[in-house]
Simulated assay, not measured.
Amino acid sequence: MSNIDTDPDEIRCRADDLPVGDVRHPYVEIITSREVPLGGPRAMSVRRTLPQRQRSLIGAWCFVDHYGPDDVVSTGGMDVAPHPHTGLQTVSWLFTGEIEHRDSLGVHAIVRPGEVNLMTGGHGICHSEVSTPGTSTLHGVQLWVALPDAARNTPRDFQHYVPPTTELGGGARARVFLGNLAGSTSPVTTFSPLLGAEIVVEPGATVALDVDPGYEHGLLVDTGSVALSDTPLSRGELGYVGTGVSSLTITGAGAGDAPARLILLGGKPFGEEIVMWWNFVGRDHDEIAAFRDEWERESERFGRVEGYVGAVSRLPAPQLPHARIRPRRNPPTENPQRSTQEETR
């Protein structure tokens, strides 16, 4: 998915100063989303959870859009003309509906529920995304992964994987689309240690997930409500837990409520500073400006998408900000709310 804000922020993201979790009672930071329209008077909106001022990265995860369920008849659905990417991988995961994907690698694919599609746009790629004619409801998440410096010029690539359902016991199940969890491992290639999984928790069920203590984690609530380590999370909220935690306990809402559907994201702290603007991930303002210039000049860095039919043949790049942006840092390691939380246990 494109970030088609007409005046996007330039965001410098740092992955240091991360809150370290307590093994027994991890502190859960709640991150809320903001509504972002995808363009046009009848456009669908997305809930953008990352990046935020309070937190820019979770591992190498640098962008989290959560959308739907969206009535395609009333909103017009998704129709994003060819647009560029650099320095990242896009991860598409649907709950309902279908999206037609075309890219400059020559891939023409249909994104379906329960099937992960990962596109690598290291050196440069462009693609289009359109909800299919048979789609009446669109619902899913679009995620970006920042590529580390050693891999950020990697060639274009596209991977597709259908993860099996893994029973977690006690009324919970998962589909692991990146990394490994509960004995299930995804074969999809990434360039940083990562975890990505859809988890469904039945009402009243409790599951304890063994996780890598070297990872930080974010749990996004799609439907229903849960408690993550005793901290309540509602639909659209993301609960963040820092490194040093080897188990995450998730409890579904009470009997009679609907099952909770969640997206669990994790990864080792990225350890590099990046700049995000529009659909580019780079290392400084000048590099972003060069990417924008190449896209506007229709450079071969990005190639061309064949077969897309829309009102415009490609998305024009917005104007760059007039000033350079200072680094945006994650909050200090010591969070004063932790002591208050522990006193109330």
Score class of each variant (00 low, 15 high):
Y308T: 06
C126F: 01
P213S: 10
N330Y: 09
A174N: 06
M276W: 06
T132F: 09
Q341C: 11
P51F: 08
A227D: 12
T344A: 12
D257P: 15
R345Y: 15
V20N: 09
G114I: 03
L118D: 03
T166H: 08
L168A: 10
A15T: 00
S186H: 00
D9Q: 14
Q337F: 10
R304D: 14
R47F: 08
A258R: 14
G68K: 00
V226F: 00
S246F: 00
H127R: 04
T165L: 06
L209W: 00
S45V: 14
A227Q: 15
D5I: 09
H139G: 12
S45H: 15
Y240C: 01
P84H: 02
R261A: 04
A323V: 10
H127I: 02
G310S: 11
V111H: 10
S246M: 02
V305T: 02
D293W: 10
A15H: 01
D293T: 13
D286S: 09
A81I: 02
R12D: 09
G59L: 08
A317I: 12
G236A: 05
G39T: 04
V64Y: 12
C13E: 09
P336L: 11
L138D: 01
V20R: 14
A289D: 09
W295C: 00
A172W: 00
L194P: 03
R329H: 14
E287V: 06
S313E: 12
N180I: 00
E216C: 14
E273R: 13
R55E: 00
L138R: 00
I110Y: 12
D286T: 07
A197N: 05
L105A: 14
E100I: 07
Q142P: 11
G242R: 07
E273D: 15
V46E: 02
G239T: 04
R292E: 14
A227W: 11
S246G: 04
D70N: 14
G76D: 01
R24G: 08
P37N: 13
R156L: 12
I11D: 07
R14L: 13
T96K: 04
S339E: 07
C62T: 11
H83C: 03
I31C: 10
V176L: 07
G307S: 08
M119I: 13
V72M: 03
H285C: 09
S2E: 11
Y161E: 08
A258Q: 15
G59I: 08
D157V: 05
F302A: 05
P113R: 01
A109Y: 13
A150T: 08
C126Q: 07
S339P: 01
G140T: 06
P82V: 08
W277V: 03
G242H: 09
R235P: 08
V36D: 11
T137L: 11
E202V: 06
T190C: 03
L194N: 04
F63C: 02
A258C: 11
G124W: 08
A182E: 05
P259V: 03
T333P: 02
D7G: 11
M44D: 04
R34G: 05
A258K: 15
P193M: 13
D222A: 09
E342K: 12
S33G: 14
T340K: 15
N153R: 15
R304K: 14
L233Y: 00
L228D: 03
A290K: 12
S92W: 11
G214Y: 02
R326N: 15
R48M: 03
S131I: 03
L147M: 07
L105G: 15
V36P: 15
P163N: 04
